[in-house]
Amino acid sequence: MEERDPRTEPKRRIRAAHTAGTITVYQAYSPVIGVPAARDGRFPAAWKRDRMTWIKPSFLWMMYRCGWGAKEGQEVVLAVEITREGFEWALRGACLSHYERGFHPDRDAWRRELREAPARVQWDPERDLRLAPLPYRSLQLGLAGEAARRYADEWTVSVRDVTPLAREVHGLVRAGDLAAAGRLLPVETPYPEVPGLLDRVRP
């Protein structure tokens, strides 16, 4: 796991596993959705494309959210590789999930953005291996409507079941071997930001 100095790390930045053309995000589902998605490399018809879905580039934030894959309905942890083109399309059209004084002109303007945007962003505290909050934040991206459909049917490059990895890392953490646990984590580095990418969502 890459050590970051909280004194110099930007408060809000996308950190992710990424390649020249893709970015990996995480979700957790019940076996009804997760097993066929990992098997077929795409989301099944049972995956509701008309509902908002939240994707998380941070593996440890996903572990915090799903309890290392132990929470009911989140037993299958998926690493979903999607195109950077799609990810950035969603970010450019996104809005913050909450009103931010001084960033939005007023609450009505923010509400209008929220109604019209195909995606929304939350910045939540990043987590360490013990899932304690860190002083800097990681991105969650909520996809709705067109964005959710494109995520499932156009942007997805691969879907992997990383539940065994989650359990192995958790076991090492519980045993107190944080160094070994950290070596197993996906390598997440700052995501390259093209100009204007986060202008609508980073206060």
Rank of each mutant, 00 (worst) to 15 (best):
L141Y: 04
P195R: 13
A144D: 03
E100I: 14
P133N: 10
L129Y: 09
P118E: 04
A148D: 04
Q122L: 10
P135V: 12
V194S: 15
E100V: 15
R137A: 13
T156W: 08
L184T: 07
Q140N: 15
P195D: 12
L165N: 06
R167T: 12
L141W: 05
G171R: 06
E113M: 15
R127H: 08
A175E: 13
R127W: 05
D161M: 06
W155V: 00
E154D: 15
L198C: 10
V162A: 02
L129A: 06
P190L: 09
P118Q: 12
P190M: 06
P105Q: 14
W123T: 12
T156M: 06
E188W: 00
R160Q: 15
P135Q: 05
F103A: 12
D124G: 00
A179W: 02
R130Y: 09
A144L: 05
G182N: 10
L131P: 01
P190H: 06
H170Q: 11
R120C: 07
A179C: 05
Q122Y: 05
L198N: 03
D199K: 03
R127A: 15
R112V: 06
G145V: 14
W110V: 14
Q140L: 15
A166H: 04
V169Y: 00
W110D: 11
V173S: 04
D128C: 13
R137K: 09
H104A: 04
G145D: 03
G142Q: 07
V169T: 05
V169F: 01
P135L: 13
L198I: 03
D177G: 10
A179I: 01
T156N: 12
G145Q: 02
E193K: 03
T156L: 04
A180N: 02
A119N: 13
P118A: 10
P133R: 04
E193V: 07
G171Q: 06
Y191D: 00
E116P: 03
R174N: 02
P190T: 01
E188V: 04
L114T: 11
F103L: 08
A179V: 08
L185P: 01
D177N: 10
D199Y: 01
V159M: 05
A117G: 08
G196E: 10
